[in-house]
């Protein structure tokens, strides 16, 4: 029994995948706090779809994925900003237009020029088992960078996330802080997309943060609970996927979702108990 549990650790491809999935979980969990609290989960969703176009284009043209998709993500971000400025359209529609078009370009390019099916599937659902050392490096570097930036900008990030108008008046450069969040988000999506896949990355940006919000009323505590939940989801999900023979990224998301449901039920129950106590008084 125990031997079966440890069986996957004998394969280096599994260990690589496990390391990246755990790190990616922590990273997405950390940034997810801002995504969830600012109500911008659609941006995470959209950006990951936009990056897909960049990934496909760079594969076809034959340039490095990180450079090609990185440039593509920045261009999409700028386009979204420009289109959203026309008030009649609005940011959510602008994101919808730019990112789905970008996604469609990616699909068309892969159909026409790519090695077709295999790579499309890899990008949509990720391929934890195809993880290369470069991915481990990329995720590690971005995780450390994002961690340091969140610590260094903690005060400004908190103020600008909670109350941008007043932060601005108090001297926080809110536009810069927002650009910083977008940059961290783009980097995170860029390095984790090949692991988790376009379709599921937005889930990892939302679920651990939403779960941690139910567990605490403190922003500071959310900033460590959410990455821990993300990392645990990555670790447990990877192992479960090996034993259950299910898609790695899907299993990671399912583990995170089960955590959400358990906490949702438990905190709901606790709330009801509290109400019952109040009624007794």
């Amino acid at each position: 029994m125990i031997a079966t549990l440890f069986e996957p650790f004998g394969y280096s491809f599994f260990n690589n995948g496990l390391a990246v999935a755990t790190l990616a979980g922590a990273l997405c969990g950390l940034l997810g706090v801002f995504v969830v609290l600012r109500g911008m989960s659609y941006i995470g969703h959209g950006l990951s779809h936009a990056v897909f176009g960049g990934a496909a284009a760079s594969a076809v043209v034959g340039i490095n994925y990180f450079i090609g998709a990185g440039i593509w993500a920045v261009v999409s971000g700028v386009l979204i900003g420009r289109i959203a400025r026309r008030r009649i359209i609005g940011a959510d529609a602008a994101i919808g237009v730019v990112t789905t078009a970008s996604f469609a370009i990616g699909l068309a390019l892969l159909n026409r020029y790519g090695q077709a099916k295999k790579s499309i599937e890899a990008v949509l659902f990720g391929s934890v088992l195809g993880v290369q050392p470069a991915d481990i490096w990329a995720v590690s570097i971005v995780a450390v960078l994002v961690g340091l930036l969140v610590i260094a900008f903690y005060r400004r990030l908190l103020f600008a996330t909670f109350d941008p108008d007043v932060a601005q008046v108090t001297g926080v450069k809110v536009a810069w802080v927002e650009a910083l969040v977008m940059m961290m988000l783009s980097l995170t999506i860029l390095v984790t997309m090949r692991v988790i896949g376009t379709l599921l990355i937005s889930a990892l940006l939302v679920i651990p943060a939403a779960t941690s919000r139910m567990l605490t009323n403190s922003f500071a505590r959310m900033l460590w609970i959410s990455p821990v939940l993300g990392a645990v989801s990555g670790f447990v999900g990877m192992n479960a996927s090996y034993h259950l023979d299910t898609s790695a990224s899907a299993t990671v998301i399912l583990v995170a979702a089960i955590g959400f449901v358990v906490v949702y039920a438990a905190t709901g129950l606790r709330g009801r108990v509290r109400v019952a106590h109040v009624h007794h008084i």
Partner: peptide, 19 residues
């Protein structure tokens, strides 16, 4: 619904004092 306590809210303007 933002996760902050009264104390955390009050000291928010300190963001200009340092990092």
């Amino acid at each position: 619904n933002f996760p902050v306590t009264v104390l955390e809210t009050v000291i928010m303007t300190r963001s200009r004092n340092g990092w």
